[in-house]
Design a protein around this nucleic acid. Sequence first.
DNA 1: ATTAATTTATCGTTTTTCGATAAATATATA
DNA 2: TATATATTTATCGAAAAACGATAAATTAAT
Lengths: 70, 70
Amino acid sequence: MEGEIIFNIDVMLAKRKMGLTELAQRVGITPANMSILKTGKARAVRISTLAKLCEALNCQPGDLLEYRKE
Amino acid sequence: MEGEIIFNIDVMLAKRKMGLTELAQRVGITPANMSILKTGKARAVRISTLAKLCEALNCQPGDLLEYRKE
DNA sequence: ATTAATTTATCGTTTTTCGATAAATATATA
DNA sequence: TATATATTTATCGAAAAACGATAAATTAAT
């Protein structure tokens, strides 16, 4: 029925051997807010934040977001 | 410098031979708002909307969003 | 020319981000 | 163990933005 969007920020952080706090600093948001994004509790994302995430992790939106239908 | 996020909804619509109006209906937003998303004028996206887009177009977020650095 | 589809714009309401902050929890390290 | 560090969770408030409703303008198709 209804699928869901999965955040794979944790996967990219692991690949880059980077911590959440460092990523938060690079993106320019607080670690607390980055944690919300990482753990999939965000209900929306600003395009500017997504762009900065891609920049900081040198990746594509598709590396950070995944659609899983169940 | 700063990269940008590109929306490829138009590409997916073309692949699916689907119109913007039909997509809007399937996703449950007005054609006017879908146009804003499609033309890259949105400054944020709700995760729920992204999920419905993926559902309606049977695709992944990576098919709809692209990061281009310049 | 007429119809349909898409885009652009504005208003008001609701939702959400995000900073700031604090506290709780987990993880690592001496 | 104790201590420091990292991550998560939660709350508040302000600013930003989605989105519906709506109308008008523009474009495409017939």
